[in-house]
């Protein structure tokens, strides 16, 4: 039986760790490499770095961060943010990441998913989906719409349709990020997570809204996710990764213990 994964997500801007609420008002809170190493030692199963830097110079700094992480942390990690070509993907993989997360670029040019999967294998390609709850309509029958640019742009695409399409194009994994829940600490969007997890055969990562250890248990039981992404809940020292996994284990969730 596969263990459910706990995945801290680090937003990185110009080489610094940062955290916002509902994608706004980011503040710098530390060194991403040190933080990632601490999570690794504490039993994180995987780490995600999300590069929110826009500038070319910032990109170079990010690749250096990836290299430093790769030389110190011996669990898988993925990098996302602003990756829009196969060449970008190659740079990140050569710097030492296992996986690439594409989000806006996949919505704008879906062939990036199949191109990436053909070049590096499906297991390398994680598709991140930013999702907003909307009234159901003919265009959005599930009541969940794909948005990009941190929720600022509505795409008129149904999230459930998109999840299946992304799987068909060769994605290895889906990260479902609820904009409604992001940074609220009120819990993951379980209806959305389960809707998608039940509709695809690739692993689904729940993202956005974790505030208590019980939320993570909910994500992998009621939400049927394979993994729970976390940020604020560990970045501010409220809980350690080890605390969270110990709680999950007590609730009967199979999680990896660090021996």
């Amino acid at each position: 039986m596969l263990s459910k994964r706990v995945i801290p997500c680090l937003d990185v801007r110009n080489g610094k760790l940062t955290k916002g609420v509902k994608f706004l008002g980011n503040v710098d809170i530390g060194d991403p490499v040190e933080t990632a190493r601490c999570y690794y030692e504490d039993g994180a199963d995987e780490i995600v770095f999300y590069d929110i830097t826009a500038s070319h110079e910032g990109r170079g700094i990010m690749l250096k961060v990836v290299e430093r992480v790769a030389s110190q942390i011996f669990i898988p990690f993925s990098v996302g943010g602003g990756i829009s070509t196969v060449a970008d993907m190659r740079d990140v993989l050569l710097a030492g990441a296992e996986k690439i997360s594409v989000n806006s670029a996949a919505v704008k040019t879906p062939h990036i998913i199949s191109d990436g999967a053909a070049a590096f294998g499906s297991q390398c390609i994680v598709v991140g989906m930013d999702v907003l709850r909307v009234p159901t309509s003919e265009a959005i029958p599930s009541g969940y719409e794909i948005v990009i640019h941190g929720g600022r742009r509505h795409m008129g695409i149904d999230a459930l349709w998109w999840a299946r399409e992304v799987e068909r194009l060769g994605a290895g994994e889906l990260c479902i990020n609820s904009i409604d829940a992001d940074g609220t600490k009120d819990g993951y969007e379980l209806t959305l997570t389960r809707l998608i997890a039940d509709s695809v055969r690739i692993p689904v990562i729940a993202s956005g809204g974790a505030g208590t250890p019980q939320h993570m248990v909910d994500a992998v039981t009621a939400g049927r996710a394979s993994a729970a992404l976390i940020a604020s809940i560990v970045h501010y020292g409220e809980y350690t990764v080890a605390d969270l996994k110990a709680f999950m284990a007590r609730q009967g969730v199979k999680v990896r213990q660090v021996w």
Binding site: M1, L2, Q123, G172, I202, P203
Partner: peptide, 20 residues
């Protein structure tokens, strides 16, 4: 193969990705 199920009775995800 897609007909395989995990111990909880749910169908397995393919690839086998994660810790075991």
């Amino acid at each position: 193969t897609p007909d395989l199920t995990e111990e909880d009775g749910l169908p397995i995800n393919i690839p086998h990705m994660g810790w075991n």
